[in-house]
Design a protein around this nucleic acid. Structure first.
Length: 493
RNA sequence: GGGGGCGUAGCUCAGCCGGUAGAGCAGCGGCCUUUUAAGCCGUAGGUCGCAGGUUCGAGCCCUGCCGCCCUCACCA
C-alpha cells in the first residue's frame, strides 16, 4: 500500500474494527436485484426493501448525503438522511465511495422526482481499501484496463456489457447446435501429438508419466475420432493454444468452436454457418443484421457471397499459376515477399494472403482450396488438386474454416507423411498413427467447421481488438527484479 | 524482429524555447437537507517508467533498458 488514499481507508477500517464492526462480515442482508426493484418501483413506494452493491462517490450535504448503488443489473440512487439513520450517522464517513454495502430503506423519490431508496439501515459488506477510478472518465489507460480487468469491469459499464454479450453469443452458439441434435463434448487439451492445424504449440510435461505433452492447437483430430465412434454430430467450444505472435486479432490462447456432422459435406456446412449467423442476428443482435466493424458496416444476412480460392488468386495475380512454382516465385519476388526456404504451396498461399485477403470485405465464403494447404480436407472429385473446403472472411479477417472431412485413411497417411518431408516447428514430429487407425475403422462422410469465438465476438460487439473480448489477455509480466521506485512493501499487520 | 507513438499525483490530463512540477476528480478538515460531474473555503499528495549522458541547470535534449498501444513482418 503506497498511496495516501489507501492509508486513509486503512485507518477507517481499523477504526471500525476498534468499534467492533467487522469490515468484512461473512454475510449481510441479502438484497433484491436492482432491476427487479426498478421494474415495479412505483408500486413499491413506501415499502422497505434491501439492496446490495457498490457505492459510487458520495455527494455530501451535511445532514443529507446521496450516492448511487450499482449491482450487476442496474443503478439506483441512495439517500442517507440523518433523521432516518440515528445509529449509523456518527460513523457515516467510514462508509465511502467504492465500498460494498447492503442498504435497507424506504422506496421513494427526491423532490426532483428521482427514484431513491431512503436508507434506514446501512451495513458495510466489504471495505474497499482503494478508491475507484475517476467518475467521469473511468479507467482509460489500456494497459491498466487489461492488467486490472477487475477495475475495468466495475468502472466501465460498456466493458461489462461487451462481456455479457460474449456470454450470450456462446450461449446462442450452443443453442443453435443443440437444436440440430449435436452433442457438446470435451476432448483432450493435453495431447501427446499436436495436430488439426498448422501452428507452433506450447510444450509441457507430465511428471508421473514422465511424458512430454503439447497444449492443443485444435481439437479436430479427437472430434473426428468421435465421428468414427458413431456420435455423428458433435461440437466443442474450448480453449486452444498457439505459440505465435500477439496482435489485435491474435491471443496465444483463444476459444474455438469446432463442429462435425456425419453425412454432411462442405456445402451443407456452409448452410449451417449461414444458419448460425441468422440465429445470432435474431437473438444476440435482436433482429438486426447489420454490424459496424473497424469503421465499416457489414450485412450478416445470408446468403453470403461465394468465390473460388483459385479464381480470386487469378484475379489478383494475372499470369501467375498457383501450381507453378516458378511463376509463383516470380510473383512473390515482385510483391517483395520472403521466399527462401518456403515449400511451394506455402509460398503460393502467402501470395494469396498478400494479394487477396485484404480485398475480402465479406462476409464471403472463399472455397475450393488447394489440397497442398489442406491436409485434412477431402479432394474434389473433378480436380484432385483442390479440396472441398471453405473459409469465411470478413473485413480481411478469417472467421471460420470448414471442409468435407478426409476419411480415406490411405490418402490421410500419405499426406501426413508428406508433411514430415519438410517438417517445420508447426508440424508434428510424427504421424498420428492412432488417428489413421481410427479412419481405417471407417468414418462416414462428414462436414466439419471451426469458428473463432473471440473473433466472432469482436464482430458482434464492434471491438477492434481481440483483447477487448478476452477478459484476461496475455501480457508480458512486469519484471519483479527490475529496479523500481517502490521500496519493499511494509508489513501491514 | 522493423517502423511509429505513449509512460507526469490514486484516476483523467496539462506542462511553451531546457530555468522552482500544475489542474480537475478522488482524499483529508470545514459549511450546507434534494444533489446527481453538487457547490464553496481550506489542506495534503510526485524518484515525471528505469538507468546513464549532455548542460550552470533536464519532465523536456541524447543513449540504453522496461512496459503498453498502433503498424509491418510472423501467424492456414
Amino acid at each position: 500500500m503506497t498511496d495516501g488514499i489507501a492509508k486513509d481507508r486503512l485507518e477507517k477500517l481499523q477504526a471500525m474494527r476498534g468499534a467492533g464492526v467487522d469490515p468484512f462480515p461473512p454475510r449481510v442482508p441479502r438484497g433484491i436485484p436492482l432491476h427487479e426493484l426498478l421494474a415495479d418501483f412505483d408500486q413499491r413506494v413506501g415499502q422497505a426493501v434491501t439492496v446490495c452493491g457498490r457505492l459510487s462517490q458520495i455527494r455530501d450535504f451535511g445532514k443529507l448525503r446521496f450516492s448511487h448503488l450499482q449491482d450487476r443489473t442496474g443503478t439506483l440512487q441512495i439517500g442517507f438522511e440523518r433523521d432516518r439513520l440515528p445509529a449509523f450517522w456518527p460513523d457515516r464517513k467510514r462508509v465511502e465511495g467504492n465500498d460494498l454495502v447492503a442498504i435497507t430503506g424506504i422506496v421513494g423519490h427526491t423532490q426532483k422526482g428521482e427514484r431513491t431508496l431512503w436508507a434506514t439501515e446501512v451495513v458495510l459488506a466489504s471495505k474497499a481499501l482503494r478508491a475507484a477510478p475517476e467518475k467521469w472518465h473511468g479507467l482509460q489507460d489500456v494497459e491498466q484496463r487489461y492488467r486490472m480487468r477487475y477495475v475495468d469491469l466495475f468502472a466501465n459499464p460498456d466493458v461489462r456489457a461487451a462481456f455479457a454479450k460474449r456470454s450470450q453469443i456462446v450461449r446462442e452458439v450452443r443453442a443453435y447446435f443443440d437444436s440440430l441434435g449435436y452433442l457438446e463434448v470435451e476432448t483432450p487439451i493435453l495431447q501427446p501429438i499436436f495436430g488439426g492445424a498448422a501452428a507452433r504449440p506450447f510444450k509441457t510435461h507430465h511428471n508421473a508419466l514422465d511424458m512430454p505433452l503439447f497444449l492443443r492447437i485444435a481439437p479436430e483430430l479427437y472430434l473426428k475420432r468421435l465421428i468414427v465412434g458413431g456420435m455423428e454430430r458433435v461440437y466443442e467450444i474450448g480453449r486452444v493454444f498457439r505459440n505465435e505472435g500477439i496482435s489485435t486479432r491474435h491471443n496465444p490462447e483463444f476459444t474455438m468452436l469446432e463442429s462435425y456432422e456425419a453425412w454432411a459435406d462442405y456445402k451443407d456446412i456452409m448452410a449451417r454457418v449461414e444458419g448460425l449467423f441468422a440465429h445470432l442476428c435474431a437473438t444476440v443482435l435482436g433482429g438486426q443484421t447489420v454490424v459496424t466493424f473497424r469503421g465499416k458496416s457489414f450485412d450478416l444476412k445470408p446468403p453470403f457471397q461465394k468465390a473460388r480460392y483459385l479464381d480470386l488468386f487469378a484475379q489478383q495475380n494475372p499470369g501467375c499459376d498457383w501450381f507453378d512454382h516458378q511463376s509463383v516465385l516470380r510473383r512473390a519476388r515482385e510483391l517483395g515477399l520472403k521466399t527462401d526456404g518456403l515449400p511451394p504451396e506455402k509460398l503460393a498461399n502467402d501470395v494469396f494472403e498478400a494479394t487477396v485477403e485484404d480485398t475480402l470485405q465479406g462476409p464471403i465464403f472463399v472455397h475450393d482450396y488447394p489440397v497442398a494447404i489442406s491436409p485434412l480436407a477431402k479432394r474434389m472429385p473433378e480436380d484432385a488438386r483442390v479440396t472441398e473446403r471453405f473459409e469465411l472472411f470478413l473485413s480481411g479477417m478469417e472467421l471460420g474454416n470448414a471442409f468435407s472431412e478426409l476419411n480415406d485413411p490411405i490418402d490421410q497417411e500419405q499426406r501426413f507423411q508428406a508433411q514430415l518431408l519438410h517438417k517445420d516447428d508447426e508440424t508434428p514430429g510424427e504421424v498420428d498413427v492412432d488417428y489413421v487407425t481410427a479412419l481405417e475403422y471407417g468414418m462416414p462422410p462428414a462436414g466439419g467447421l471451426g469458428i473463432g469465438i473471440d473473433r466472432l465476438t469482436m464482430l458482434l460487439t464492434g471491438s477492434d481488438s481481440i483483447r477487448d473480448v478476452v477478459l484476461f489477455p496475455l501480457l508480458r509480466r512486469v519484471d519483479p527484479t527490475a529496479p523500481t521506485a517502490e521500496p519493499a512493501p511494509p508489513q501491514e499487520r
